[in-house]
Design a protein around this nucleic acid. Sequence first.
DNA 1: TATAATGGTCAGGGATACTGACCATATTGG
DNA 2: CCAATATGGTCAGTATCCCTGACCATTATA
Lengths: 139, 139
Amino acid sequence: MDLATLMYVSYRAMDERVLTAMRAAGYDITAAQSRIAQRIDDEGSRLTDLAERAQVTKQTASQLVVALERQGLVERVPDPADGRARLIRFTERGRAAAQEAMQVVIGVEQEWAEHLGPRMTAQLRAALARLREVTDPYA
Amino acid sequence: MDLATLMYVSYRAMDERVLTAMRAAGYDITAAQSRIAQRIDDEGSRLTDLAERAQVTKQTASQLVVALERQGLVERVPDPADGRARLIRFTERGRAAAQEAMQVVIGVEQEWAEHLGPRMTAQLRAALARLREVTDPYA
DNA sequence: TATAATGGTCAGGGATACTGACCATATTGG
DNA sequence: CCAATATGGTCAGTATCCCTGACCATTATA
């Protein structure tokens, strides 16, 4: 099995775990919404930036933000620095959700670390970080 | 950045490379179609098995197979062992496409290996394979 | 100040993937 | 041996994702 497929398998497993946990916690969120939400800065982010970071068009990003907004997880406020722009930022509820999701990620990573052992875990992280240098267009 | 997201970044880069190359070679294939096609055995596979391996419903798998069939990449033949089932297998053109895709994957992996060096590449593969033991429901 | 660039939205469409209902063939328990 | 159940697939309908193209408002630039 090639490296990319191996990565996909585990990525997908994580995704599944996080979404299941979030649904159990009462958040009706999807994978794509989560990928956008993960990229919102604490001070708020512009749609264009979110789109670029998530590697989707701004139209797609906009749609996902609308969905997050409908669930009361984010809000859009005017950007004081630019009359055209609006800042997307977490609501209280959104921040709580983000933290909850992060807890799940940390938990799953701990499970993984237990299975791999500390040495292999460190090697995995180092290799992936290094690989990112040539695979992440927005690094 | 968490491990799963790091994996997603590189997985996605590979995906992009393969699809771009395939389109350049005249195959009008999508990522989802490719994920199904990758799982077709040389002797042919049943829809249900493909669906399970790709972790989608059989309805979704069926739809993707139809798309591959329309492009002349796969064909469906009755399964001699079971009157209900049909075997999905590559056509000549499909086999050629699969090989072409494999070449691209190998090429990209070589690029990655050059960036990481042989030691880190081996560590990455070993760690991912090990991780798969706890993340792949159909391993 | 006219032109171009940037931040976003609206409209429309194709692909992906799901649930639910259903049919045909195989398998199994009585 | 046959009724009940399981399995392999299809059909229909729908939500989400993500795209292209067209467009508007504001900002930056020549």
